[in-house]
Design a protein around this nucleic acid. Structure first.
Lengths: 205, 205
DNA sequence: CTAAAAACGTTGCATATGCAACAGAAAAAA
DNA sequence: TTTTTTCTGTTGCATATGCAACGTTTTTAG
C-alpha cells in the first residue's frame, strides 16, 4: 500500500485520522503537548521552523508530498518551540501514533497495512536524515558543498545537476552563512572544481 | 512486543532471521550490496565507520543495545565504503527488510507484531537523528556544546551532567576539532557558563 | 503593469576554528 | 606489576567563515 491507498482507506474505523487543508502561511501543527502526533503531507510544501533564543528563524526541515513529520519524531524534552508552517496550499493527514501502535480491536486488514506502509515512509525519512547528517558533519563549507553535489549527482547519474532550491535555502540546509557559501562557490569555480550557470552546476572532477 | 520478545519469537518461519555473535574488532556488516539489510544490536557496542577520501577514519554513528542499523537506512548511491565494527562483544539480529515488507503468507501473528515493534525502534532512531541534526546545525563549537549539554540536562532533569563518552568521541560526535573543543570548554568555564571536573559538568545558566 | 519582497553577488573585517605538535595523565593490555 | 595505548590539555599559526553592509537582479504580489 502506498500513501494514496492510505488516503482511500481512511474510512477505517479503528484509527482516527483527520485529513485537513491548510492555506499558505498557516500553522499545520505545533510540537507542543501532542507527543504522539504523526502527520503525512499529501500535497504542498511545509517547513519545520523554530525561532531560537536570539530570535533568529531556523528552518529545521522542509517537507514535500509524502514526507512524514510530527512531534512523535522529536524528543520529549524539546525546549524550544517548534512548529510546521504551510509554504503552499497543503493537504495533510493527521493521526496519533498511539492509535497505530495499539493492537487493532477489529484486526482489520487496513491497520496492518498502514503500519507496514508507515514503516516504509519512516525508512525513507531515515535515509534523508542520514544524508543530511553526512553533509552537516563535514567541517568546511567546501566539503559540505561537494558532498551535497555528489549526492545530487549520483542520484541522477549525471555530472550536470540543478539545485532544487535557492542558494539562500541551500545555505540554511548546510547550516552555513549564505555569503560565505557564495564566496566558496566562486572559489570552486575559479579552481576548476565546478562550472556554474545560475543553479545549474557541472561537476568537473 | 519489545526487542527481547522479538528474539524469543525468532522461530517464525516466514522471516529468515540470523542471530550472530561478534568479537571485538570484527566486522558486523558492510554497507555494500546488501541493500535491504536491517540489523538490531542486542548487546554490546558497535560503530558505523568510514574511511574518507583522505584516509581519515570517521565514526558516523555509535550503536548500543537495541539500536537499529543497516544498509536499508542508507541511500542507494553511497559512494564511500561504510562498515559496522564491533567495539565489544556483540550479539546481533540480522534480517532483510524485504522479508518484513512482503505480505506474510502465513498471516502469522509474529509478523504483524514484528513490523509494529520495528516501527517503534525506527521512531527511536529518528528521534536520535533529529537530536544529532539539531546539534550539528549549530554554527559554532560553543553552540554545539551548549545545545548538547542542555539536551543531556533536560533528559536527566539535572543541571549536573556526566558526559557519557570521552572528549575525543564527543568532538567526533559534534564534528569539530578536539583541541578546539577543549579550548572552547575552557572559555565556557572562564566565562562562567559551566563548571567542570573531568567529565562532570555543571550548567550555571 | 507596477510595487514590494526576496534572492543574489560582493567585500572588508574580526575571530572562531582547524591543524600540527608536544608532553603529561589515564586507561587498557600484557 | 610493567608496558603500551589512548586520552587529555595546551599553544602558535594560518585561514576559513560568520557578520554587516550595500547595490543589483529576480521573483512574487497587488
Amino acid at each position: 500500500m502506498d500513501v494514496s491507498e492510505i488516503i482511500e482507506n481512511i474510512s477505517c474505523n479503528c484509527i482516527k485520522m483527520q485529513r485537513k487543508n491548510f492555506n499558505k502561511g498557516s500553522i499545520i501543527t505545533t510540537y507542543i503537548e501532542k507527543r504522539k502526533q504523526i502527520c503525512i503531507l499529501l500535497s504542498g510544501k511545509a517547513d519545520l521552523i523554530r525561532y531560537d533564543l536570539n530570535g533568529n528563524k531556523d528552518i529545521i526541515e522542509s517537507f514535500v508530498a509524502h514526507d512524514i513529520f510530527g512531534e512523535a519524531f522529536y524528543p520529549v524534552h524539546t525546549n524550544h518551540e517548534l512548529f510546521v508552517m504551510a509554504m503552499d496550499k497543503c493537504e495533510v493527514l493527521l493521526f496519533s501514533y498511539d492509535d497505530i501502535h495499539e493492537k487493532c480491536k477489529n484486526n482489520c486488514k487496513f491497520h496492518a497495512t498502514l503500519v507496514s506502509s508507515l514503516l516504509e515512509l519512516v525508512l525513507e525519512q531515515i535515509i534523508h536524515q542520514n544524508t543530511r547528517i553526512e553533509i552537516l558533519s563535514k567541517r568546511t563549507i567546501r566539503d559540505k558543498l561537494l558532498t551535497y553535489f555528489s549526492i545530487l549527482s549520483s542520484k541522477s547519474f549525471n555530472k550536470n545537476i540543478t539545485l532544487p532550491m535557492s542558494l539562500t535555502s541551500l545555505a540554511d540546509y548546510l547550516s552555513v552563512d549564505r555569503s560565505a557559501m557564495t564566496r566558496e562557490l566562486k572559489y570552486l569555480v575559479d579552481e576548476g572544481f565546478i562550472s556554474r550557470n545560475g543553479s545549474n552546476i557541472k561537476l568537473l572532477y
